[in-house]
């Protein structure tokens, strides 16, 4: 008898300790970036480009990277959503199970699992092969490609939750498959918004994919076909600098990135609630 309750007590402690360690870790990561970042954050970091010698301790900011990342991520998301939505819809055109649809889902799942560094490496290989230079354009393409399977499957999962009766209702009224699918999209809309915003968060924070495809630049992004600075790489370069002043700025840059990602996450929750109005439970 006693052994049972001792065992229970022991494992309960283990569980609480585990969750505390996990929570401690989460809070540690967030607070480190926030606290260290805030102390190094200044207005000029946000509104100026790096001056000459910025990485040696000189003045300026990372506006180039902030804008670069925002343009890149937005462009990638726009490219991706124009393809993800039709693909996700095509997986739902029938009410029947289909082996072909399962094949597509499986290949997309595999693509989701491929590390982003490999996406970067492959796109870079193609770029070298056709003689292209790294630029905002190629950065957008790389991010769009790795985000694509993720976004398709997220939207697909949302659509899987559509009650079958809605599809039947649409068909019974004489809808074509495409018309039925637009009803499914209406029903899935809050989930689609969430998928887009979360994909934005992933895309803007990823460094491995754009390491060699987007290049880097100290000037503000002006052209699609010029190398562009990005926040993750700005952080990487600043933390690698031997000058402590510059290293501190890496944390400030990290804070900026964190704020952007958190904003996207919060926006996804808020917006998806707003769009829940007409969704049938």
């Amino acid at each position: 008898m006693k052994r049972k309750s001792m065992e229970e007590y022991f494992f309960k402690i283990l569980m609480v300790v585990s969750i505390l360690i996990v929570l401690g870790g989460i809070l540690s990561v967030i607070f480190t970036v926030v606290l260290k970042g805030v102390s190094a954050l200044s207005l000029s970091m946000l509104i100026e480009s790096p001056h000459g010698g910025y990485y040696l301790g000189g003045g300026g900011g990372i506006l180039n990277a902030i804008l670069g990342s925002l343009y890149l991520a937005c462009g990638a998301i726009i490219l991706s959503i124009t393809l993800s939505l039709p693909v996700a819809m095509s997986l739902h055109q029938s009410t029947m199970k289909s082996r072909y649809v399962e094949y597509i889902r499986t290949s997309l799942d595999i693509a989701c699992g491929i590390p982003t560094i490999i996406y970067g490496a492959v796109v870079f290989t193609i770029m070298v092969f056709i003689g292209a230079r790294s630029s905002l354009f190629w950065g957008m393409i790389t991010v769009a490609i790795f985000i694509l399977p993720i976004m398709i499957r997220s939207i697909d999962e949302i659509m899987l939750q559509t009650p079958k009766k809605i599809k039947i209702a649409a068909f019974a009224l004489g809808s074509t498959r495409t018309e039925m699918l637009s009803v499914v999209v209406k029903q899935s809309f809050p989930g689609i918004v969430t998928a887009i915003l979360l994909a934005f968060g992933r895309g803007i924070g990823d460094a491995a994919s754009i390491l060699f495809t987007a290049g880097y630049s100290d000037s503000l992004p002006t052209s699609l076909f010029e190398p562009v600075a990005t926040l993750p790489l700005a952080i990487l370069f600043q933390i690698s600098s031997p000058y402590p002043v510059v290293q501190q700025r890496a944390y400030a840059s990290g804070l900026i990135l964190l704020v952007i990602v958190l904003t996207a996450s919060i926006a996804s929750r808020v917006l998806s609630k707003k769009f829940m109005k007409y969704v049938v439970k």
């Binding site: 996990v22 870790g25 989460i26 540690s28 990561v29 967030i30 480190t32 970036v33 260290k36 979360l198 968060g201 992933r202 803007i204 924070g205 990823d206 460094a207 491995a208 993750p232 952080i235 990487l236 933390i239 890496a250 944390y251 990290g254 990135l257 964190l258 990602v261 958190l262 996450s265």
Partner: peptide, 15 residues
């Protein structure tokens, strides 16, 4: 926990 999942990997590197 969901928040943690969304944090970019460079920030984990900084930490």
């Amino acid at each position: 926990i969901d928040l943690l999942a969304g944090i970019p990997s460079v920030l984990f590197g900084l930490w």
